[in-house]
Design a protein around this nucleic acid. Structure first.
Lengths: 222, 222
DNA sequence: ATGGAAACGGATTCTCTACATCCACTTGCT
DNA sequence: AGCAAGTGGATGTAGAGAATCCGTTTCCAT
């Protein structure tokens, strides 16, 4: 193994940069500059570029942590005894995170698509998410024409609202809007339940997992 | 009135530029360049800048046409005898247009927010859209906690999917994905109907029209 | 038909912005 | 103490889009 072992201050600065990166990318999205991140970390730009070859690499490092976070959420969702509650738990938490983390939302929605860069994360999360959907569907709590990939796409759609909304300073103030996405999440959830008079026959088939990943991993917007 | 009356070739070129602008902005979104548009119009850049002071002004001119188009759709929706069909008609058509016109989607979703620039259009469409929603709700065909602003926000969310999807050349080819957004539209529509066993109490109140316009008219993303 | 105002084309200039490097100086480690 | 490792931030570079300028062409009123 090649472990050049960093000096103590180098390790400390790497840590600071990661934390600052999370904060800056969360607030301003992934077009923030490595200079911005360095400043926030209280460190020179040169240092930033010695610790991470470029912005991509820093984003990758952060992305790994975030995938692990989502993995924990999915695991918890699967541990939930009621499959529907598990599904709701996942969507609520995943969206809550993305509402506060613009950068993460960008990666997960494929709006920062470096062609195959984030496949690793998707490959890791997809099976768990599919299990969440399958479990609910097989229990008769989720309409039977809906799959795990549908949850991804719906999440992408709702994330738009979550990130359009300003992150209020005080979420209790009247007129606070930071939770607005939850309103639409619950409308969607009602649309996903099977217990209704008439469930509409959906006009288009769902995507395969593969198609979904291709779509989100290669689309480039603005 | 001040009508400097343009020369015949100038009028023709203005027309070409408008058409080219619609095409280019539809395909590539609003970050396309006036140079791009000029090229597509078969016209020099200089000409483009003589006919339209800058990109903004061209976009404005196009935007006016598009608002009128939406107005016609809303009017037709209101003429529909069944209020629910009217609502569906509006969403289907509006989304279909935005799926093919990335630029329009950007303006309507507030992703190209020049602070108060597009208020005119919103002010003009909002009352009609509210009427569409009210009519359906009062007929008991739309859940009674849902308003016109909800339709706007849901539309914004669904537009994300519509514009993430590549505009297929041939919409009949198997594996075509250009209609995918309709799948989620219909899930949402099922969530909007009142005829179900349990309608969930929504966790957040709807936005006022004013709030919605502020939100979409000032948010900056990308 | 003709003269001159209007319009045209597109190479060119201007302005920004982000990325990345370089090197004189400082710090941590043995 | 000594030196490799690390640091800061001014500076260089590159690329992209906006807009202009001016020599040439086109329109149209007389």
């Amino acid at each position: 193994m090649e472990e050049p072992k960093l000096r103590k201050d180098a390790v400390r600065n790497r840590e600071r940069l990661l934390a600052a990166g999370r904060a800056v990318f969360a607030e301003r999205g992934l077009d923030a500059t490595l200079n911005d991140v360095a400043h926030r970390a209280g460190v020179g730009v040169g240092t930033a570029y010695r610790r991470f070859a470029n912005k991509e690499e820093l984003i990758d490092a952060i992305h790994i942590q975030q995938v692990e976070e989502l993995e924990r959420i999915l695991t918890t969702a699967l541990a939930e005894p009621d499959p529907w509650s598990g599904l709701v738990f996942y969507l609520e938490h995943s969206l809550a995170i993305q509402a506060k983390d613009r950068g993460m939302a960008q990666v997960l929605s494929g709006q920062f698509a470096q062609p195959r860069r984030y496949d690793w994360g998707r490959d890791r999360l997809a099976p768990l998410l599919n299990k969440v959907a399958d479990r609910a569907r097989e229990a008769g709590l989720l309409r039977d024409d809906v799959t795990g990939t549908d949850l991804i796409l719906l999440q992408v759609a709702l994330t738009t609202i979550a990130s359009t909304t300003p992150n209020s300073i005080d979420a209790n103030e009247p007129g606070d809007i930071s939770q607005l996405y939850r309103r639409y999440l619950w409308i969607v959830l009602d649309g996903l339940r099977p217990d209704r008079d008439t469930t509409t026959l959906l006009p288009v088939p769902p995507l395969t997992t593969q198609q979904t990943h291709t779509l989100l991993g290669s689309a480039s917007h603005e």
